[in-house]
């Protein structure tokens, strides 16, 4: 365990990495802003989702379920289940950084895929882990929100989403989010089962519910022992 203070050179590298990660997420942010406004959310609502919900996949899911005619509760449930992993990240951040009581309330909002992955590269309780978490979390937060606004303003200029194929863009967006996760036989099986469950149930249930019920594939597969 290295508890030594980080050198200025180390901190510069961490900050630079954080900046690039923030810039990279901006491309998702533009897509989200455009898609949410196209789906019927106001610019303020779209921006509120990026500021408050601040979890890309959950934001896309919330907007997509509502745009497809699903109920508000189905949209909330889908987005919230996608956010369960952030709770687990929080547990890791608590180990790595040991925030004091008041810090927890701010750190919680910055607990996302990118900030957790960056902090996780460093030793627990080191000052570098904290710096990596904060720099990445703040960088992504700033660029994600600026990009959301840019995408939302861009989409407002466009009138008919079907003509521009934005509905097809959402599907491809979800694919791009799930594809990097399909690294093991188990995750591929869960994805295939989820596709089958959701499509099989689509003719029988209200929009949004088939997606929620596809989560049973994960609930069951998570209880299987590793081979």
């Amino acid at each position: 365990m290295s508890n030594l203070p980080a050198t200025p050179a180390q901190l510069r590298i961490i900050d630079r990495d954080a900046l690039f990660i923030g810039l990279a997420t901006a491309t998702y942010g533009i897509s989200f802003g455009a898609i949410a406004v196209t789906a019927g959310f106001s610019i303020w609502q779209t921006q509120a989702l990026s500021l408050l919900l601040f979890s890309g996949a959950s934001q896309f899911a919330f907007v997509s379920v509502l745009a497809a005619g699903g109920s508000v509760s189905a949209a909330i449930a889908t987005a919230s289940l996608l956010g369960v992993r952030n709770g687990l990240y929080g547990m890791r951040i608590a180990q790595l950084i040991k925030p004091i009581a008041a810090q927890k309330f701010i750190y919680a909002q910055l607990t996302i895929d990118e900030s957790t992955a960056m902090a996780n590269r460093f030793d627990a309780t080191s000052s570098t882990a904290r710096r990596a978490f904060l720099a990445t979390g703040i960088s992504v937060f700033v660029f994600w929100n600026l990009a959301t606004l840019a995408g939302a303003l861009l989409a407002q200029a466009v009138t008919s989403p079907e003509v521009f194929g934005l509905d097809a863009a959402i599907g491809a967006g979800f694919f791009a989010l799930v594809a990097p996760r399909l690294t093991s036989t188990k995750t591929k099986f869960v994805a295939a089962a989820a596709v089958a469950i959701s499509l099989a149930l689509t003719p029988w249930l209200a929009a949004g519910l088939p997606i929620l019920l596809a989560a049973t594939a994960a609930v069951i597969a998570a209880s299987w022992s590793e081979k």
Binding site: A61, R85, L177, L182, A191, A194, V195, A214, A218, A221
Partner: peptide, 8 residues
């Protein structure tokens, strides 16, 4: 696995 199932 939960995000994988929901995103798929």
């Amino acid at each position: 696995l939960l995000p994988t199932s929901l995103l798929a």
